[in-house]
Design a protein around this nucleic acid. Structure first.
Lengths: 329, 329
DNA sequence: AAAACTGCGTGAAACGTTATACCTAGAACG
DNA sequence: CGTTCTAGGTATAACGTTTCACGCAGTTTT
C-alpha cells in the first residue's frame, strides 16, 4: 500500500523557498517581486514540480480560462473544421475549450447554455438552432450564423455576397440559365441570405434563374424530381447550378452523373462552405469558401472581451471563390 | 450603473430555507435527509435558481466531472467522428469534454497531458503520436490505436482482422491479383496491423499480392508512379486494391479515373475507416468500417473506472465490411 | 532631521464547497 | 424510569487560491 502523494501547493512552495504564501502567488501570476525572491520561488517551483490548481484559482478569481463551444455536432465537415479553428484560436490565447454537442436540439442548447453559465466558463461560442435562446447577462456569448438581436454579437460569412459571387462566377464561365438548390430552414438565419444574394445578382445581370427549396428534413433525393422536371431531350433547362452547401453539391454530382449529365461540360455547379472533407487533397466541387479562420478569430476576440465592452452586433466576413472541378475554371 | 448580482450560494439557500449549510449540501448531493427539510431546501433552490459552483466542488472534492480528449485535430473525418462519439458517451454519463488538438506534435501532446493532469481532469483519452508519452500515475489515461505497454490501456479496432476481411471481400468479388497501398508510420501503432492481416489472408488464400508503402509525409501522388509501373496495355496487373484509409481510397479513385481505369469494372477497391465525410448520404467507397461507437464506449468505460481498478491493456473491437460503390458488392 | 512617500514582503480573510465531529431528541430497551 | 442507540441536523475545519490591509525598510521631501 503506497501512500497517495498529493500534489504540492503554493504553501509547500512557500515553505521550500522560505517566503510567504502571497509572494509565491505573485511570482506565479507575474506580479513584480524582488529579484532574489523571485529566483528562490522559481527554484522551489521547479524542484517540487509545482503546478497551480486551476479549480482553486477559478473559485477564488472567478475567471476560469475556459470557453464553452456549442455546436450541433462534429460530424459535418463544416462544423468540425470551424470548431478546429476556434480551438486553435483559443489555445493561442491560453484558453481551453469545453465542447458541447447540441444535436440540433433547442432544449439541449438551452440546457447547455445554462450549464455552461453555471459551470463558470469565461464565455460561450455557439452555433445555435434555437430561435429563442435565453442567455444570462453575466456571461459573454457569441453566436455564429444566427442573429439574435443587438444584444448578442453574431459572426457570419458574408452569405449574401457569397450567393452573389456564385451567380457571377457561373455567368462568367458562360452559363446562361441558372438554378439554385437549397434546404429551407424554419428559422431565420444568416445562410438564408445566400439565396437573396444569388437572386439579386441574377436580376442585376438579367440572367434567368429558377430556384428549388426543400423543406428542412426532406431527403436530398427530392431534388431528383426537380431535375427530372427540367430535363428534356437529354438536356437540362439550365446550365449552371448553385447548391447552398458543399454536401448538397456533392450529392447532386452523383445524381447528375447517374442521369448521364456531364459536369462541368453540360452543367456547371458551385457549392458553398469550402470545408474540404479530406483536407487539401480533394477538390470535389467548385465552391464559395467561408473564411473559417477569420470567423474563429472574430468569435474568440469578441467572446474574450471584458464584459462591459460593447461589440458589433453583426460581423459579416468576406468569402472567396475556389475552383474545384465542377466549373470550367 | 447596475449592481453586479452575484450568483446564489449554498449559504443563501440555507438561509432562505432556514436550515444549515450542510443540509443543503446533502440535498444537492442526494444524501438522505428528512422529508420536510428536503422539500424546504428544494423550494429554496428553485426560488433562488441556485446552481452549484463546480469550481468550489472540484476544489474540495477532487473530482471535476471533466475528461480531457487529445486528438491531432478535428479535420480528418475519422478523428472528428470519433471525438463526436466520445463526446456523446461522456455526456450520457454527465461528464464534460475538454478538447485539446495536438497537431501531431509530440511535444504538444506531452504538454497537454501534463496540462490536463494539473488542471485536475478526471481522466484523459488520447490518440497519440508521441511514442514515449509520459503519464502521471495519478490520472487515468486511455490510448486509442497506440499501445504503450501494459500500464496504459489501449482501445483499437481489430485492424488485423480488418485487413484480412478486406482481402477476403476482394477475392469473394472475383479479384485474383491484389495490391495494398498504405502510408508507413515511423511509430508502431495498431493500424499497421492492417497490412499484416491483409498479407496473411492473401497467403492463406493463395492469392498473389503486391504492396506499396509510402513514407510518412510523402504526398499521395507518389502512388501514381506505382500504378503506372504496373499498368500495361491499358490494364493494371492487379484487379483489387486495398487502401489503408478511406481518404487514400478517395484520392486513388480520382487517380484511376484520370488513368482511364474504371472502378469497380476494371479494378475493385476497398478503403478503411468508414467515416463517411458527408453523413449518411455519401457512399464514396467500399470500406472496412471501424466501430466508432464501440471504441468511444470502451474508452469512456475505462477512463471513468476508479483509479485502483485494473483494465485490459488492449481491447480490439470487431470491424465490418460495407459496400460503397467501388466493389461489385 | 522629522515627515511623508514608496516598494515590497507578510499574513489572514474569503471564495463556495465537502466532510466530519458533535449535538439533540426521540425510540428502544432492560 | 434511567440508559443506550440511532437518525439526522448543525457547526466548522479544510481545499488551494487571490487579494488586500498592514508593516517595515529605505528614499525623498521640506
Amino acid at each position: 500500500m503506497r501512500e497517495e502523494k498529493t500534489a504540492p501547493t503554493m504553501k509547500d512552495v512557500a515553505r521550500e523557498a522560505g517566503v510567504a504564501l502571497g509572494t509565491v502567488s505573485k511570482v506565479v501570476n507575474g506580479i513584480p517581486v524582488g529579484e532574489e525572491y523571485r529566483l528562490r520561488v522559481e527554484a522551489a517551483i521547479e524542484k517540487l514540480d509545482y503546478h497551480i490548481n486551476s479549480y482553486a484559482k477559478g473559485l477564488k478569481s472567478g475567471r476560469t480560462m475556459v470557453v464553452a463551444v456549442l455546436f450541433p455536432n462534429l460530424i459535418s465537415p463544416f462544423f468540425s473544421k470551424l470548431v478546429n479553428c476556434i480551438n486553435k484560436e483559443l489555445t493561442k490565447r491560453n484558453y481551453r475549450m469545453m465542447f458541447y454537442a447540441t444535436d440540433y436540439n433547442p432544449e439541449k442548447e438551452q440546457e447547455y447554455v445554462y450549464l455552461a453559465e453555471h459551470q463558470k466558463v469565461d464565455g460561450i461560442i455557439c452555433l445555435s438552432y434555437n430561435p429563442k435562446l435565453r442567455v444570462s447577462e453575466n456571461v459573454r456569448l457569441v453566436s455564429i450564423d444566427r442573429y439574435f438581436g443587438s444584444q448578442i454579437p453574431c459572426v457570419a460569412s458574408d452569405n449574401y455576397g457569397g450567393g452573389w459571387l456564385a451567380a457571377e462566377k457561373l455567368v462568367e464561365n458562360g452559363c446562361r440559365h441558372l438554378a439554385m438548390l437549397r434546404i429551407g430552414s424554419p428559422l431565420p438565419h444568416e445562410p438564408l441570405k445566400r439565396k437573396d444574394g444569388f437572386i439579386a445578382a441574377c436580376e442585376s445581370m438579367g440572367v434567368p434563374y429558377m430556384q428549388k427549396s426543400l423543406e428542412d428534413g426532406m431527403p436530398y433525393t427530392e431534388f431528383d424530381d426537380f431535375l427530372m422536371e427540367h430535363f428534356h431531350d437529354g438536356k437540362l433547362e439550365f446550365d449552371g447550378i448553385f447548391c447552398a452547401t458543399d454536401s448538397l453539391a456533392y450529392v447532386m454530382k452523383g445524381t447528375l452523373k447517374r442521369m448521364g449529365i456531364r459536369v462541368p461540360e453540360d452543367v456547371q455547379m458551385i457549392g458553398f462552405d469550402g470545408s474540404r472533407a479530406f483536407g487539401d487533397l480533394d477538390l470535389y466541387c467548385s465552391t464559395i469558401v467561408q473564411p473559417m479562420e477569420a470567423i474563429a478569430e472574430n468569435c474568440v476576440d469578441i467572446v474574450l472581451k471584458p464584459k462591459g465592452e460593447r461589440s458589433p452586433s453583426l460581423i459579416c466576413l468576406p468569402v472567396t471563390y475556389e475552383y474545384g472541378g465542377t466549373t470550367l475554371k
